[in-house]
Design a protein around this nucleic acid. Structure first.
Lengths: 187, 187
DNA sequence: GACCTCCGAGAACGGTCGTTCTCGGCTCTG
DNA sequence: CAGAGCCGAGAACGACCGTTCTCGGAGGTC
């Protein structure tokens, strides 16, 4: 087994466990059992648990970024459709069985107050998302204020869908987004 | 010292510490030191740490509910102003030094996956908020869909303001809310 | 003063955490 | 086969957790 594969195995298990139960609630032994990788190997790959958490978040950030890009690309060239693609992506995500909110928001709540690196990664992730939305808006000739408001809707949908266990949040967010975009085009 | 005062002292300290650092990160000894109440007394008031957490959330829920009511009352009778009052309340909150997001969202992320009681309290809190918004909307002759969308904006503003450390989220949320309300009145 | 009750400070307890170490068996090389 | 290196399983370690217990002093009553 390659070193890189082992790393992925550990991160796969860590991502799943941390997301489902929270970070502190998952011990290294549970991670070892789920990943099927010995403690010795894990600590050869990562200096400490904190570094695994950071690596999980970094990988999740990259995955989110690329699936957002893909969703927008697949939405074609229509200004409306491109900006609304994010809400379709959210709806799909909200419907998955394991959905339990945004891992970054969860990480910020649990660790942001005591772990500055986690706080930084989460902040960068959300800043990146806002920048992407601003870019998509700009490409359609729409304002960055609108983009920011659309991202607020997306964030709100994530927490609401998680806590209320209700994927409808995505649909309502999209409906609101449509109104905001239409109003922005009119002005 | 009355029993009820001691209870409040413990909950005051717990609320502050849990909010700033997360729930698991704060031990009972730190709580004892900050509250100035001995462990013996704390365990006479609460069976276990879990119950303190639940009590903190319940109290926070009541406080939020009453300050929301107050904010809406003070906004007068204008339909716009009443619905927008919540965003002014949020802005005020976001500007406080210790602001670190919505305690319920944080609790859900950290404990929701393993502690069903916490998950329930958080869910009820958010359902209650949505109901309040729906009630305010109805009183102004506006739809419950609009109310739901306004609550999505409020939720998104809370996480965004916390993570990006940017109180502007409240202002943008309010601006978006104004557009949504205007569009709803027009139709 | 003698006795009782109360309570805070802090030790004690059992358990779990993150991290490291030991041991015994496996595989490869010559 | 002999020897050496490697690695997984799990023990070991020190720290800290939530919770309970002990001890000794403070204060009230006769």
């Amino acid at each position: 087994m390659e070193k890189i594969d082992l790393r992925e195995k550990v991160l796969d298990a860590a991502e799943k466990l941390y997301y489902a139960k929270g970070f502190t609630a998952v011990g290294m032994d549970e991670l070892r059992a789920t990943a099927g990788v010995s403690l010795k190997r894990i600590y050869a790959l990562f200096p400490a648990k904190t570094d695994i958490i950071a690596a999980v978040l970094q990988r999740k950030h990259n995955e989110w970024e690329s699936s957002l890009h893909r969703a927008v690309l697949e939405a074609g060239t229509d200004a409306h459709a491109r900006l609304l693609a994010v809400y379709n992506l959210l709806e799909q995500w909200f419907c998955s069985e394991e959905f339990r909110g945004c891992a970054f928001i969860n990480a910020f709540g649990e660790l942001g107050g005591t772990n500055p690196e986690v706080a930084r990664i989460v902040k960068e992730h959300k800043a990146d998302f806002q920048m992407q939305m601003a870019k998509f808006a700009k490409e359609s000739g729409l304002s960055s204020e609108l983009a920011y408001q659309l991202s607020l809707l997306a964030e709100g949908a994530q927490t609401t869908a998680a806590i209320s266990a209700d994927p409808q949040a995505a649909i309502q967010a999209r409906a609101a987004a449509e109104v905001l975009i239409a109003a922005s085009l009119r002005s």
